[in-house]
Design a binder for these strands. Structure first.
Length: 331
DNA sequence: TAAATTTGACCTTT
DNA sequence: AAAGGTCAAATTTA
């Protein structure tokens, strides 16, 4: 068996173990952070399998399919860095969600996943005990968000729901702020960040704080010479470990609730990050929260082993990526 | 009463 | 042809 095959086998094994762990963790509120981590590990493992199985030098092996979830890779990508034009690129990932049964009553729906969904259909599925529900993003028509999900109660464990997410959210859901009020942070972003700050400790390389540019024109996302210089000077600084602090509405905000194109464009990568490169974003975001002050960070991705630079300030939060993806938050 | 859900018809894919 | 997926009118809910 070639190396890639071994890795796939190992990752599949990890995936199954994490799924089992998640089941064992149950509904205890104390363990909800652990549950959050397991789902992250699960997604990352699945994604790794997808990357490996879609590469040129590895024949597709059906053994991956033996697990709980269908392979997201087999009909998504043909080659690692080439998109398949024949088939529509539709990102797909599966989750198992345990229903949180309240006292007595049986809530028949899985826990809220942070997005707002609108049910548009239900179908009996051949050979399945329970029907499959079809949901689309509430903001499909208002913002053209094409994310959908399918929810089906598991045959084996009625407290378990299989959730298949299709596509990624491009929507920005905002609570229309009162006139003159500063915009409130996106609730999804907040809970996401709170989970991160509660769960993660990251290694950062602290830098001399840049003189905080107060409320001038917000800097445009461009790779400045000063940023490059800062990165260069970062390399010899010692690493510091921060314990995390909760993120608050003061720490974070989203772009102003104007309808300019900047807003959606800048926020979309964050939505995508929700599951695309979660671990990398986690490190960055958590580091920002932990730093609690203007800082520049440098880290090495655990998944791609590429090095990225990150500059963030609470005043003019700006996150830059080596690979040109970009996050921009303004408060 | 606007928004969400239900449900049979219709469309698409295999 | 049949199973899966979506539409949209009717109905329910907040």
């Amino acid at each position: 068996m070639e190396a890639a095959g071994w890795v796939v086998t190992e990752l599949s094994h990890i995936k199954k173990l994490v799924a089992q762990l998640e089941v064992h963790l149950g509904e205890s509120p104390d363990l909800c952070n652990c549950k959050h981590l397991t789902s992250q590990i699960f997604s990352l493992t699945e994604r790794s399998i997808g990357i490996i199985t879609s590469s040129d030098f590895c024949q597709k092996r059906s053994s991956i399919e033996a697990g709980l979830t269908p392979s997201p890779a087999s009909d998504v990508v043909d080659a690692p860095f080439k998109t398949n034009k024949k088939r529509k690129m539709m990102e797909k990932r599966t989750h198992q969600v345990r229903v949180t049964s309240g006292s007595g009553g049986e809530p028949m729906t899985p826990v809220d996943d942070g997005h707002s969904w609108r049910k548009y259909g239900q179908k009996e599925i051949l050979g399945a005990k329970h029907p499959r529900g079809y949901y689309r993003c509430t903001h499909r028509h208002s913002q053209g968000c094409t994310a959908t999900k399918q929810v089906q109660r598991s045959d084996l464990d009625p407290a378990l729901f299989d959730v298949i997410y299709l596509g990624t959210h491009t929507c920005v859901h905002r609570t229309s702020p009162a006139a003159g009020q500063p915009p409130k942070p996106n609730p999804d972003a907040r809970s996401f960040l709170q989970n991160l700050s509660a769960n993660l400790k990251v290694k950062t390389e602290g830098l001399a704080r840049p003189a905080s540019r107060r409320s001038g024109a917000p800097p445009l996302p461009r790779r400045s010479a000063s940023l490059r210089r800062r990165r260069a000077s970062a390399s010899h600084l010692s690493a510091a470990r921060f314990s995390s602090v909760p993120s608050t509405s003061e720490n974070w905000g989203v772009s102003p609730a104007t309808s300019d194109s900047n807003h959606v464009a800048s926020f979309a990568p964050f939505e995508a990050a929700d599951w695309r490169a979660q671990s990398e974003y986690q490190e960055v975001v958590s580091a920002l929260v932990a730093a609690g002050a203007p800082a520049a960070l440098r880290w090495t991705s655990t998944t791609t082993s590429s090095t990225s630079i990150f500059q963030a300030s609470l005043r003019d939060p700006l996150i830059m990526w080596e690979d040109s993806s970009l996050l921009l938050f303004s408060s």
